[in-house]
């Protein structure tokens, strides 16, 4: 089983990287570009599957892969 974890800064957290990317988009001629948020994606080969692994994975998402104070995560599982 493979997990795809997407981690994004919370809407309330200042994302200066997103602002810098938005400004660069404007310079590229995409003047209408609005909000840009920069996050990260992790592809994780779990080597096993089952409900127990899934529970532990959510724990890892909350404790290690994201920091709930500043980030939200989305977990997708692939067989």
């Amino acid at each position: 089983m493979r997990a795809i974890v997407t981690v994004m800064p919370k809407q309330s957290v200042l994302d200066p990287q997103g602002v810098a990317v938005r400004d660069a988009m404007h310079h590229l001629g995409l003047e209408n570009t609005g909000l840009v948020r920069v996050g990260k994606i992790m592809e994780i080969d779990l080597g096993a599957s089952g409900p127990e692994i899934e529970g532990k994975l959510h724990e890892a998402c909350r404790d290690l892969l994201s920091n709930p104070v500043i980030e939200d995560y989305r977990l997708e599982l692939e067989p």
């Binding site: 800064p9 957290v13 200042l14 200066p16 990287q17 810098a20 920091n67 104070v69 500043i70």
Partner: peptide
């Protein structure tokens, strides 16, 4: 210490980058 939840809050990228 913030990551370990011994202190409240978190530190993020400087406003200026």
């Amino acid at each position: 210490l913030c990551e370990a939840r011994l202190l409240p809050g978190a530190l993020v990228r400087n406003r200026s980058l």
